[in-house]
């Protein structure tokens, strides 16, 4: 596949007309037709069914269009990076991170990015799910890292980074700390500290509602750091992502029947051009080993 062929195909998939696609790509129609034909040979099937009034994508065309778009965007970003590296441009980058994510998880990646781009000015924003969506919509943030955002905006692109189990954590001094596992009944007499800004707060509440833990007293804490400090001080216990609890040095007590996992994704806005630092950070996040099972949810052969 060559980039120009994909560009022509994407134009064709949107216009469903060789004439309009050629206009949009600023190319003579026979060239566009030839490029599409060549792509069809390589992909092993027709992409567009030509009918006089109702041309439409074939099943293969439909299936391959989103995948081609992804390829094209990745390649386009690689070209932007190649050009700007040559010029040595200073860049700026604004990233929104959910309140439910510890910045410690990102520290290595951000410092490596900062090292590689001496001219980079980084802006790190924090917010709840809805605040993060607002930042992306307004353009205040180019990328966002967050748990599941309950958002139906069709320009919001999400790529899963990792799946992180959620479980019960207590302070080392807590009566449950030495237990191998806990049940919902164990929580009935406890105080639950809830991270109000977490995208999973609603899901956790739903899961506990009809169990013996449903009657437990609860406090809502806006800041994740505050919540961890309060759990350490034994004010209460918390149901939080595995990485966050472990990193804070709290004791994990697997809660039977909870079975909750959060998918952390990197979000961006479709159609907005990614700058060099933004494209590089996106790739670093996608490539990173987060220490959890693969985001595709499948086990891998050799490992």
């Amino acid at each position: 596949m060559e980039m120009y062929q994909i560009r022509y195909f994407l134009a064709l998939s949107e216009t469903l007309s060789f004439t309009k696609a050629a206009e949009r790509c600023n190319v003579a129609q026979p060239s566009l037709t030839r490029a599409i034909r060549s792509l069809e040979v390589e992909l092993g099937g027709e992409l567009l069914r030509r009918e006089r009034t109702l041309s439409h994508l074939t099943e293969l065309g439909e299936r391959i269009a989103p995948l081609m778009r992804q390829c094209y965007e990745a390649a386009d970003a690689a070209k932007v990076v190649a050009q700007s590296l040559k010029k040595g441009e200073a860049t700026s980058l604004s990233v929104a991170v959910s309140q439910s994510i510890s910045v410690a998880t990102l520290a290595r990646i951000l410092s490596e990015l900062s090292r590689a781009f001496p001219g980079l000015q980084l802006k790190l924003l924090r917010g709840s799910g809805p605040e993060i969506v607002a930042c992306l919509k307004s353009g205040e943030a180019e990328l966002a890292i967050a748990g599941p955002l309950d958002e139906t905006w069709d320009r919001l692109d999400a790529v899963a980074l990792y799946d992180e189990p959620i479980d019960l954590f207590v302070s080392g001094k807590h009566r449950l700390a030495t237990r191998k596992a806990a049940e919902f009944e164990d929580l009935a007499s406890e105080t639950l500290l809830i991270n109000a800004a977490s995208e999973m707060a609603g899901k956790i509440a739903d899961r506990l509602k009809d169990t013996a833990a449903g009657t437990a007293r609860s406090h809502r804490v806006a800041s994740l750091d505050d919540l961890l400090t309060l759990v350490k001080a034994d004010l209460g216990v918390a149901i939080i992502p595995l990485g966050i609890g472990s990193l804070a040095g709290l004791s994990l007590v697997p809660l039977g029947g909870l079975e909750l996992v959060r998918t952390v994704s990197v979000y961006s806005v479709a159609g907005r051009c990614r700058g060099t630092a933004c494209a590089t950070l996106f790739n670093m996040l996608r490539a990173a080993d987060w220490g959890f099972e693969s985001a595709t949810g499948r086990k891998c052969g050799g490992l």
Binding site: M1, E2, M3, E42, L43, I64, L67, Q70, C71, Y72, E73, A74, A75, D76, A77, A78, K79, A82, A279, F282, N283, R286, A287
Partner: peptide, 15 residues
């Protein structure tokens, strides 16, 4: 090279 971005920019990717 995530999503074959660099490879694709060199016309080196295939389905």
């Amino acid at each position: 090279d995530m999503d074959n971005g660099y490879a694709m920019s060199l016309d080196l990717a295939f389905w």
